[in-house]
């Protein structure tokens, strides 16, 4: 059973950038591990390349925290590979990723009000 504390989306914030991207990728669609890594790379504009090991460490964490669950979806029979599992966001996961997005949007708003965004690249 999950404690009430961990079912509160806010208790998971802030997310590590990589974890946020994993959740975003899963928000798009259910995916298996390798496809997930590719999506993360695409979402980050090629900046974040998750190696297999870290990817599964994040997944393990997300599964434990109940943000992600295994999907019962299977690919078409001729492409099926029993080793491959699909993952999707849980209700909680969806809430968390949304909460993180809101948090970031707030931060962006603050930055904008401080006129930081216009001055990018001249900070030093």
């Amino acid at each position: 059973m999950q404690s009430s504390e961990t079912t509160q989306p806010d208790s998971h914030l802030p997310l590590k950038p990589a974890v946020f991207l994993v959740l975003l990728a899963l928000a798009e669609e259910e995916q298996h591990g390798y496809a997930l890594a590719s999506s993360v790379r695409d979402l980050s504009g090629g900046k974040l390349k998750l190696a297999t090991g870290p990817l599964y460490r994040h997944l393990q964490r997300l599964l434990d925290d109940g943000l992600v669950e295994e999907s019962d979806r299977r690919p078409a029979a001729d492409q099926d590979d029993r080793r491959r599992r699909y993952y999707r966001l849980t209700e909680l996961g969806r809430d968390v990723v949304a909460a993180e997005a809101v948090r970031m949007a707030d931060l962006v708003e603050v930055s904008r009000s401080l006129e930081l965004l216009g001055a990018q690249g001249k900070t030093r």
Binding site: H32, G33, Y34, A37, A51, T52, G53, L55, Y56, R57, L59, Q60, L63, D81, R83, R84, R85
Partner: peptide, 24 residues
């Protein structure tokens, strides 16, 4: 190499990890 990983990860994801590595 994966032996270095915690045993929980290995037992939990098993062959899937190799598959993903293989794909990459």
């Amino acid at each position: 190499l994966l032996r270095a990983y915690p045993v929980e990860i290995r037992t939990r994801f098993g062959l899937e990890i190799y598959e993903a590595f293989d794909d990459s």
